[in-house]
Amino acid sequence: MRRRNLLRGAMLAPAAVAMPVAAAPQTAAPATEPIDAKIVVNAPSLTGDQRTTFFDAIELAALRALAGTLVPSFEGRPGAVEAGVPEFVDFAIAESPAARQQLWRSGLHELDAQSIKAFGVRFEKLTTDQAAKILEPLKAKWTFYGPSEPFAKFLWEARTEMLQATLNSREYAEANTGRRAAAASNYYWRSLD
């Protein structure tokens, strides 16, 4: 046992050193059972197609087009679409605070609105050059807190989120096997309770 883990056994519960104001009912400690670590259980995302729940069909079409434009597949490695990023973003935004949900929803609407105004079609129908015109705010000089104008803020956040979600995907990690870049991995801390 490592030295620091001695501490766990040394630490007492709050009731050990003082009298409680009111006594609590005693409960039996749960029985522990052996765990077979050899059983491999996969994550739900390994099979089945994820159902989107937050964005509507038009918004999703814009989201997929934006993902494919910002983070395309490159040199045999998957881009955002191949890495399931649009579906992931739909999930992440559904779980986000209301202000962020609004930022992304209005950002996607603005993406289509500007595309229709400039070229007469939604963003998903634009050519690469046409899309570049709409995405001009991404060329602005970098600042620590990013742009404050909502559409520019949405685009900057989308680029960062979609790139990182791609790099952290299973698809990207598998395509990268043996290459320099590897999927992010680290120690995950369970709840300390």
Binding site: N5, R100, Q164, A183, S185, N186, Y187, Y188, W189, R190
Partner: peptide
Amino acid sequence: AADWERDRKLVSAYDLPFRGLGKPG
């Protein structure tokens, strides 16, 4: 008290619900 052997495990970002980016908010 954290138990460094019991309370943590090495995982890939893609095995976490938010791909390592964290639960928003």
